[in-house]
Write a protein that binds this DNA or RNA. Structure first.
Lengths: 191, 191, 191, 191
DNA sequence: GATGAATGAGCGTTCATTCAT
DNA sequence: CATGAATGAACGCTCATTCAT
């Protein structure tokens, strides 16, 4: 097994275990087992467990950014772009429930708070696409004149909530429902 | 210190520690320290740690329900009732950041999932008043004809997100902003 | 409740719990509960748990000595006296299984060793009557010329073993069997 | 230290501590200390403390069975075979006082009762060889027609009692005394 | 490099004992 | 006197991390 494969195996094992059983259910020994490596080996790839988890988060975060950009057209109306990106996020989360479960755990832990603090107070190079769209909408007076943070809450908030309910089996998000939900988010922020 | 005071001290210590450091950062020994009692004493008031946490959740849940009902008028329009309840929720969470941080941790753990599943159709902060209002709105064709779960996501989702951002200091939710946010939630679900 | 009644209630509660669940299953709180007194009250009657247990043993020991003396005739043959005492012991243990279970636990713990060591030449259930009989038998050349300790082992040993098996339900010691067993013990030590 | 050595060190430390101080005097931390390993290490070799103790019992049990079979001749008279096995048992227990003390504790605890119940008709030191001999003796009308359980009590009972007294220093079981004791046991059960 | 046996601090929990009421 | 709430040392056990092989 190549070095980078081993790294990926470890990250994936951690993802599965944390998504399925929470942080408590993912001791290093179990991660190593599932990844098919020795426990000590993990420490060759990651300084410690915290670093492993943080890196896992970063990789998923990047992967989602990629997914949002896929099929993104710069020549559409702002509304269409918003609907596209929102739909893409929803589809990604539904198609990758492990990713979602992990992200939820992560963002709701001290890790996540540190992450958000770093991002929002810093330059914010991350969730740029959503932010750019919303900023653009405000500037062009298509979107309500509210702080960016509130606009994010009004859109990403429901999208995450609805994803969670789908993954937990409380609802079945089919295509029609996805579109209606995304449209409702737009209704919330549009002027 | 009276018996019921001690119970409250323990609950409060647990609330603070979990809100500040997550479940991992709240071992029984620390809770006891902060409550100013011996570790063993906690077990006179709560069968075990799980019970302590579950009771803490129940107390907060009830407290919030009370807060939402305060000043609630049955003779107002649905929209006004929705705005009242939403505003009350937002104000409560902002005024009680520890409660909010705890609830977030709780609802995002196996405890919380079990709780929601118990209520079968509840969302984020299972809330009977909210549910009743939304169901009523759908029946009277004032609110979009979407599953209750989605409507909850579209309203409670942003409210929680915005509360968190306020508590983390990313935004300052003053009265004006609260009203605008709540109105935007209404825009998202109204027909 | 008179003072001495309370003392007896405590001793009896301890006897029951230890006999039924072993030393592990008899915390002071449970003993107090079953005795119908407060936990602290126990410490008015017994300096500590060890003392309570030791006194309980002593009371049972005395009670058994009494039982053995009941109906004892000094004018019978040595063999008849031996049979009488042995039968009485067996009957007592069978009729008082809690006493037996407790004694067994006690004698098989560091307590018991200390007790035996205190009596220095005692056997399982240090017993003056038995000893006198056996010593007499040796002197009169009716009983084998073996050390007293061995003679005790050859008689009390089987009696205790057989009692335990009866109490545990491995055998049903009826009158006939009791007499046969006691006779077999005699066969073992007689010349 | 090789892996299997460590396992033996742990078993031996547990044997010593339990034999010397009873189950109460043998916390995992002490066993680990005496074995010269960390406390956590014990759990690499034994699933939990109960398993450790049960395995220790099994090993000793097997060791004793071996000792009884040593020098056992199938072509001797029943009496000679009985004397051989009884003598071997006595010698083993005297030569291995720690084993004896441990077995006594074990058999007198919930563990031991479960073990006996498992064997359904076993007594003190459930022992197939003993049982076979006694059953054979009954069938051939050499031994008294008593339930197996009683016959075991009449033989193993005194042997254990006498061993204990020797180990506690109440008597010095030399060769002559061993033979006399074993013979007395035979006298007790023979027709 | 890779391993996994070994570690020990830290966890949740119990319980003999004390002492204010 | 009697109480039972309070205590904290001690328990069995887990697991992130290290290090000899």
């Amino acid at each position: 097994m190549a070095t980078s494969e081993k790294r990926q195996e470890i990250l994936h094992a951690a993802l599965e275990l944390i998504a399925e059983h929470g942080f408590h259910g993912a001791p290093i020994a179990s991660i190593a087992d599932r990844a098919g490596v020795g426990a000590g080996t993990i420490y060759r790839y990651f300084e410690n467990k915290d670093v492993l988890i943080t890196e896992l988060f970063r990789e998923l975060h990047d992967k989602i950014q990629m997914a949002l950009l896929e099929g993104y057209k710069t020549d559409r109306s702002l509304r269409e772009q918003f609907l596209h990106v929102s739909t893409a996020l929803l589809r990604y989360l539904i198609a990758n429930p492990l990713d979602f479960r992990f992200l939820e755990q992560y963002l709701n832990s001290p890790y996540g708070v540190a992450f958000r603090r770093g991002r929002l107070l810093g330059t914010g190079d991350d969730n740029d696409l959503f932010r750019m769209l919303l900023e653009d909408g405000v500037a062009r007076q298509i979107v309500k004149d509210l702080p960016l943070v509130v606009l994010c809450a009004l859109t990403i908030g429901p999208l995450l909530a609805v994803s969670r309910d789908h993954i937990l089996g409380f609802i079945d998000l089919d295509n029609a429902l996805i579109m209606q939900t995304v449209q409702a988010c737009w209704d919330g922020i549009k002027r």
